[in-house]
Design a protein around this nucleic acid. Sequence first.
DNA 1: TCAACGAGTGAGTGATCACTTACTCACCAT
DNA 2: ATGGTGAGTAAGTGATCACTCACTCGTTGA
Lengths: 209, 209
Amino acid sequence: MRPPLNTRRPSSQERQAGLIAAAASLFAAKGFKGTTTKEIAKAAGISEALVFKHFPTKRALYAAILAEKVTVSELLEAVEESAKKRDDRRVFTLIAGYRIRPDVDSTLLRLLLFSALEGHELSDMFFGKQHRVFYDRLADYIQLRVKEGAFRNVDPLLAARAFIGMVVHHRLLHEIFGVPMHRTHDDTVTTYVELFLHGLVHPSKSRTT
Amino acid sequence: MRPPLNTRRPSSQERQAGLIAAAASLFAAKGFKGTTTKEIAKAAGISEALVFKHFPTKRALYAAILAEKVTVSELLEAVEESAKKRDDRRVFTLIAGYRIRPDVDSTLLRLLLFSALEGHELSDMFFGKQHRVFYDRLADYIQLRVKEGAFRNVDPLLAARAFIGMVVHHRLLHEIFGVPMHRTHDDTVTTYVELFLHGLVHPSKSRTT
DNA sequence: TCAACGAGTGAGTGATCACTTACTCACCAT
DNA sequence: ATGGTGAGTAAGTGATCACTCACTCGTTGA
């Protein structure tokens, strides 16, 4: 007669969280235009009408997803610590390792690219939280080390972007274009950091400067 | 003989070329799903029905656009020439300069990203012609220079991808994410090449190896 | 002169889109 | 019990999608 008490139905908040999770993976896989509200409802296990009880429009749901993703601060703290010690290699390794780390869900990168390509209004904010923080912080550190004479006199922002570029491009190749990785995670990070800090030209050989 | 009237209407081939050009810029701007056949027809100045006389489906039109873009060979020839002279700086500058050159139409990069994200079947082929050729060729050169002892002993493919990554990421920031460029074209290229060949750490200072 | 033909289009087609309406049902304080 | 409330949905809504059909032109070879 009476429905079991422990099998209560999900609260509104749980529903909303599940809805956002389901929608996020669909938007990441197929883009905003490529995802239908019917699909989202089905993936979340609810009716299509209920989707619109939680969010007034499909676009509002999309905006909620972009707004939900926040910056990871624990990495920036670790970077800060290594920066104090002037441990160049570790600063760069931390950032590269974070951006390449293999376990991270690939939906964030796809979400970021889709939102930028499709021109969503929250794309800038999303980009700021997901990317700009990294190369802004890195640029600060490079500038500091240039002033200290440890680094060559380069444009700090350009250099920071160059390094992040190497790493992000690596993820791009792997996750978006399906290029296989023939080296291990750690190997790759080490190579990138080494390359960036010390360059490609053999130290004991012809410097063409 | 056919009388060339000066007020003739466009031939079928000219129509097709105009159609492809109009569709390409729309697909690049809004993606496959985001572009309607009605828009394409309007941009090409023809009726929607005529679009389907040229291409059986919207997808076939998209495929024709991707298939049309071919590899630029003149750059690879110039690279080849500098490679023979072992002019490292010029080899890298040529590739970087080509990938960053300011006048290039930005539709190709957007087209490439959209096709990869949306998972079009011709995306791999498109990627191969637009990107892989560059880092494959560059990897060959790096491998050669490593064997000659001029470059440090790094994974050539990884190093090539790292360099292309710096440059492509730069375009990505500028064209997709709207980040402003605070340096000139030539300045940027020079900095990237310099960074990659000689590294960031000051040559006369603490080598942390 | 005129039939044949390719270029071109207006007016649709059913399917699918985002979104709405009108409703049921479980639950609970009164 | 009862009525109010929030969770939930079946069955739509008009708009728009990719694509088709029936048709009109202008040109051209015989």
